[in-house]
Nucleic acid binder design. Structure first.
Length: 593
RNA sequence: CGGGAUGUGGCGCAGCCUGGUAGCGCACCUGCUUUGGGAGCAGGGGGUCGGGAGUUCGAAUCUCCCCAUCCCGACCA
């Protein structure tokens, strides 16, 4: 039994100044966590109870699916990550350190390499597969900007699983089993989620889906179709490619004097206010223009390469989408010095003429997939103050390829069915993907198949953010008064509050009730504090968020048989009085329906 | 990485502009009163003001550097 009189807990009346998002605010105010380091938190008794409940649910579901738990060190030597290429690829987000002899170590951000090597160490036959193993482990990432409390820390706990199969069909089966296990896990955790198509990011790999809790403070943007089941992280959205357009009758492109039009808006205004440039049928819009963005790609080894991206002028380049496309390289702005070094690029007037591997600049030029052959554009003429009108893709210029980097907007067409999509934000709580043979190849994980032939194992990788899930649940389950934990992960089932002055019958009655509940298997948080006003107790109960609150107060008299207590459902706020004599059975049934 | 804001007892803040040796609310301790919605009165303990250097007779306050936290941004051709 948790007694408030002795519990290591201090609730705060005021919000901590550095906490923005509700989960961070309420977890600190409620005495669940304390900040201990930038991006690192201490779990206090109540928080640790919640954390362990989340961990328990995850572990139970992993075990039920037949996956086996192992545990690696978090401190690892450089060599395996060197072999996989990630010592370099992971870049500055990797915590690196040295031992006293100067050997390089790292604090693991994920454990693909170690799992791969462990299986290589022990297994060598197809008969040993399939295999899925997992761990629940503290991970370290030197985030540039830790934020939002538990949602993005530099030290966090992740459950990561890996599957090992001889062939693609096996991998698909392992992937599906994990997907099912994740559905059950998040259902039990009481977390709302959307499963979206995703890109696999720095880990490499192919088929990939994310579990996103649809909450506005989340860092991921995803789209979902308003009529079909399509849902995808914006990074993974593929725009529907229109059919080529005929252009035999298209007039030749013409260079026009467009002084003072370095931006799309100034260009469109100029075109619509000069008679010789006006369209006969309608006004020009930003969508008629082709915007060319030049940037620098910085590769993990430090080398750089310029890249030009062409998008319809009414859309911005979405850096998140671009980053996902060019990973592990990182896009950077093309700064003044870079422009100065390339006089062939007229800032504000860059057109396809100066771009492409075959052009004077030699800069690789990738365009939005909507820019198909036959589409006509107004775009830069590569001279300050000049644009080209009627430039036809496929006739006047041919890009080096396409890239998914244009922003996605509410109302864009669904790639699956064509209906409008809507944008929403979410917290990534799980990510499953088919790694394939990247790590097995790099680290030499092979087995002999039934013909005695050596085959490279194919892998899947599956993660759940355990500490983040605690915050995500807090985000999904709170109100203006405080937290409202789902019962499965709450620190207790019933919060018994004594609401009476000392010396009355309420104290002893509450003591007996709490003990009886405990004996019946109900987890009790007992507010037995004396000298604390009921107002404080009620506020604390609401802040702490135990699902059921039992108030032992004025309904209790010296005649226990006619005494009543008040039961309040934290989430709905519904209250009801029940006979004290029936309380244990009533509350027990609430907890184990 | 860039920009902005902030950094003063456990928490939230004032003081800084106009230098003179630190204050308020909450929390904490003692006593009395109070007890169905963050109680009242009285008395108390706790900080040298993120760190360093400098200016000055004197620095929380002015100057410089560093660190940290939070927010915003990272390209618009």
């Amino acid at each position: 039994m948790l007694r408030m009189s002795t519990l290591f807990l201090r609730t705060l009346r005021d919000d901590p100044a550095d906490a923005e998002v509700p989960s961070h605010r309420l977890l600190v105010r409620g005495g669940y966590i304390r900040r201990a380091a930038p991006g690192g938190f201490t779990w206090l008794p109540l928080g640790w109870l919640v954390y362990r409940n989340v961990e328990r649910v995850i572990r139970e579901e992993m075990d039920a699916a037949g996956f086996q738990e192992v545990h690696f060190p978090a401190l690892l030597p450089r060599e395996p990550y060197e072999a996989s290429g990630r010592w370099v690829e992971y870049g500055p987000n990797l915590f690196r350190l040295q031992d006293r002899r100067g050997n390089d170590f790292l604090l693991a951000p994920t454990h693909e390499e170690m799992f791969t090597l462990l299986v290589k160490d022990l297994y060598s036959s197809y008969k040993d597969l399939p295999l899925s193993i997992y761990q629940i482990q503290t991970k370290y990432r030197d985030e540039a900007r830790p934020r939002a409390g538990l949602l993005r820390g530099r030290e966090f706990v992740m459950k990561d699983s890996y599957s090992f199969d001889v062939d693609d069909e096996g991998l698909q089966r392992s992937y599906d089993r994990h997907r099912d296990a994740y559905v059950r896990t998040f259902d039990r955790l009481g977390l709302p989620y959307v499963i979206v198509a995703a890109v696999s990011g720095a880990m490499g790999g192919s088929a990939s889906e994310e579990f996103l809790a649809p909450i506005d403070v989340g860092e991921d943007t995803f789209v979902r179709c308003t009529s079909c089941a399509y849902a995808a992280n914006v990074e993974a959205v593929e725009v529907p490619v229109p059919a080529d357009e005929p252009y035999d009758d298209a007039p030749p492109a013409q260079v026009a004097d467009t002084p003072g039009t370095p931006t799309i808006q100034t260009l469109v205004d100029f075109l619509n206010t000069h008679d010789e440039l006006r369209r006969p049928d309608r006004d020009w819009t930003a969508a008629d223009t082709l915007k060319n963005v030049v940037l620098t790609l910085r590769f993990p080894d430090g080398s750089t390469e310029p890249l030009a991206v062409g998008v319809p002028g009414d859309r911005d380049v979405d850096m998140k989408r671009l980053e996902a496309q060019v990973a592990p390289a990182v896009p950077e702005a093309f700064d003044e010095a870079a422009f100065a070094a390339r006089p062939e690029l007229a800032k504000g007037y860059i057109g396809p003429g100066a771009l492409g591997t075959g052009s004077t600049s030699g800069i690789r030029y990738l365009v939005d997939p909507r820019i198909v052959a036959g589409t006509r554009w107004v775009t830069g003429a590569d001279t300050v103050g000049h644009h080209v009108v009627g430039l036809v893709a496929g006739r006047d210029f041919t890009p080096d390829g396409t890239i998914e980097a244009a922003e996605v907007r509410d109302g864009d067409s669904c790639p699956a069915c064509g209906s409008p999509v809507e944008l929403a934000r979410g917290i990534e709580i799980g990510h499953i993907f088919q790694l394939g043979r990247k790590y097995a190849e790099a680290l030499g994980l092979t087995v002999l198949d039934q013909h005695g032939k050596t085959v490279t194992v194919t892998m899947g990788s599956y993660g759940i953010g355990v500490s983040r899930a605690v915050a995500a649940i807090a985000e999904a389950s709170h109100d203006e008064l405080g937290l409202c934990w789902p019962r499965e992960i709450a620190p207790a089932d019933v919060h018994v509050v004594v609401a009476a002055k000392g010396g009355g019958p309420q104290g002893p009655a509450a003591e007996r009730l709490a003990a009886a509940l405990e004996a019946a298997g109900v987890r009790v948080l007992f507010d037995d504090r004396e000298g604390v006003s009921v107002g404080v107790k009620f506020k604390d109960a609401e802040l702490l968020g135990v699902p059921t609150i039992a108030v032992v107060g004025r309904g209790v008299t010296d005649d226990e048989s006619s005494s009543t207590i008040e039961i309040k459902d934290r989430r709905s706020g519904d209250r009801s009085d029940i006979a004290l004599a029936d309380a244990v059975e009533h509350l027990r049934s609430l907890c184990a329906p």
